[in-house]
Design a protein around this nucleic acid. Sequence first.
DNA 1: TTTTGAGTTGTTCGA
DNA 2: GTCGAACAACTCAAA
Length: 501
Amino acid sequence: MTDSPSIVLFQTDLRLADNPALTAAVQRGKPLICLYVWNPDAKGYDKPGAASRWWLHYSLEKLSSHIQQTGNDLVIRTGQTAEVVSSLAAQFKTPRIFWNRSCEPAFRKIEHRLQTFLKGEGGDGTGFDGTNLADPDRIQTQSGTPYTVFTPFWKKLQTVLPPSPPLAAPQKLPSPPSTHLKSETLASLKLLPKIDWAHGLRNTWSPGEEGARSALKKFLLAPAKHYSTDRDRPDLPHTSQLSSHLHFGEISPRTLCQAITSRMGKCQSAQERKSLEAYLRQLGWREFARYLLYHFPETAQEPLYAAYKKFPWDDRSDFLAAWQNGLTGYPIVDAGMRELWQTGWMHNRVRMITASFLTKDLLLHWKAGADWFWDTLVDADLANNTLGWQWVAGCGADASPFFRIFNPITQGRKFDPDGRYVRKWVPELAGLPHKWIHQPWEAPPLLLVEAQVRLGETYPYPIIDHAAARNRALLAYRHFTKNKHSNTSSPTSDSGKCAST
DNA sequence: TTTTGAGTTGTTCGA
DNA sequence: GTCGAACAACTCAAA
């Protein structure tokens, strides 16, 4: 019994380096059961989307071989996570269970059930802080409430940065007697798509801890120096490309934070310093998203501001389909949606443009956009997705003002000035000179002929007129924001029948 | 308790 | 072509 093994539950922390739960388990000095549980019956946001499952498959493959190099094995099981873990724990007579805490509602339910189980067994179960820079319970306003505005949150967070140094990856993970430890095969989880649409993904990404480290190295080598100015340019490769690695926990935010701050200490140019600060701030936004989801778990489904439940979203499925397929007639929007479809990723600036187009030009529900991103992004992250969509839609924390409506033409010209991004993803427009690449419907007919563009045939006319759509959105939002909080703060108002939350 | 200053990412219009 | 103001009103966080 005293030699009973420790169970290490891997969730979205698929790494050996700087993994506090794993290191604590190793320090206990007993054999380890490294466990991953896949729940095939999970639904909605409790289950990774299709593109994300592709990444998960390869990330687990890497983790598994990494663990093998330490003399142990990754045990894969299927079922309800908490039940699988506790029955395994029971089988080995009250062992210790180690895991890293998560901000996601589904994982928190699992944690809660594990804690209940362990309590009943007289065991001990506390999650470790491995996916955040700071414990979300320790960051609060002076009045003890959670922050809902980024800037004061960021100021407060910076007072605890940089975090303690990252932990080294354990070299040896002592293995338990394996006789009772059956494992499912990775293939049996069926994470890979049935129809092979993933070649675009394969050509773009290297899931796993090693891929994460080399992405960081590559980022620090050059793009990080131009990040503050060029990160908004979808035509340039100056983003970190780390989002998915971070989501699956192949690299810890602490490791990233330390790498960035240590580089800041050495850097010579003001430009590079500014860039590193800008990147750190983005890590701050990631932290803020997790913090918000932790404190307001219902926001994955519902607007943070309850009054927005009554917003008059439109419901046109043909518009939604055009947006999803990259056939809106606005080149920068279509380029983004096609980049997403083909690579499982979209540049952040273009995420904002496409999201603004969906929620403000088309007036479609932000959840429709969030659902699509959830299914198609390899870096789909519940916290980031929720914050991002609610921010754009105007119903979330620190929300974008209602009159901030992106103009797809202006944005295209500003951030893809030569049209290189559009040409890459919307090749049927490639022959157009850059003057017209962001508004082909305005191009002189002769030029269209020369470029072999036949509007309405090879490329659609705009599905909606932006100027008119903008006015419609302004009207809807203007009328609406006046009553933004009416049903939460004044139950005596005429909207009393909707006062429930 | 009250007051005060501030609040990621934009666009348009008119001087 | 460039620049500043207007686009609203509200909530948050701290003093």
